[in-house]
């Protein structure tokens, strides 16, 4: 489902003396349907960078990233958007939404984007919000005013609303209490069971051991300082 070959990444800081910072070189990764792969490595090793490249958020310097057959490194913006809409989900650590939109609609939006009927989408959203213990009285409010933990759970609900065939999870269990952590882990297990290919970053080792099939240490691909 996700095939990465010979991937490298550099940042060029034009406004700081045009410093070129290589951050990744020769990365390889293959994730099949129903598999969950954890990215590991010290902070700054490039875990988030790799995830963002898979999502098309960062440009690759060279190499290929195939997601369901689409090469993200070469695709047109609209192809990447199409991929993100239907195929590739991403649960980031931060919630980024338009202020004023009710939580229920924030969660239902990915479903509306793929053409699910409004009521069916809202039903699914209600179901997820209930599972993630967001009190019903908050559903009609914008999540921008919620606590960090609540925002994180809204973000997860939104990320799991549509059954993406491929998913990227950035610290999905961080800052969650035991009960909610359990819910998220079962959501991940359910996603795997229906055949989703998952790449995740988990600092929570127990969680990693439970849901991940393999670990990839990305520091292997960190270019050695010359």
């Amino acid at each position: 489902m996700i095939e990465i070959s010979n991937l490298s990444k550099t940042f060029t800081l034009h406004n700081q003396g045009s410093v070129v910072i290589p951050v990744m070189q020769g990365a390889e990764l293959s994730v099949a349907r129903g598999q969950c792969v954890a990215l590991t490595g010290a902070s700054g090793a490039g875990k988030s960078t790799l995830m963002r490249m898979i999502y098309g958020n960062y440009l690759a310097a060279s190499g290929h990233i195939l997601v369901d057959g689409v090469d993200v490194t070469k695709a047109e913006p609209r192809e990447i958007l199409e991929l993100r809409r239907h195929t590739l989900g991403y649960v980031s650590q931060f919630l980024r939404v338009v202020p004023r939109v009710p939580t229920l609609d924030v969660v239902a939006e990915p479903l509306l984007a793929v053409g699910v009927e409004t009521e069916a989408a809202r039903d699914r959203a209600r179901d997820l919000l209930t599972r993630l213990r967001i009190p019903e009285r908050l559903w009609s409010l914008s999540p921008t005013s919620f606590s960090g933990g609540e925002q994180q759970r809204v973000n997860i609900a939104r990320g799991f609303a549509h059954d993406y065939p491929a998913m990227l999870l950035d610290e999905p269990t961080a800052s969650l209490d035991a009960a909610n952590r359990e819910t998220v882990l079962s959501l991940i297990e359910e996603a795997k069971a229906r055949g989703a290919a998952i790449v995740g970053i988990f600092h929570d080792e127990a969680a990693r051991d439970r849901v991940c099939d393999r670990e990839i240490d990305v520091s292997v691909y960190t270019p050695k300082a010359a």
Partner: peptide
């Protein structure tokens, strides 16, 4: 030019 979040983030 490019995808909005890509141009803004990278």
């Amino acid at each position: 030019s490019g995808l909005t979040d890509q141009v803004l983030d990278d």
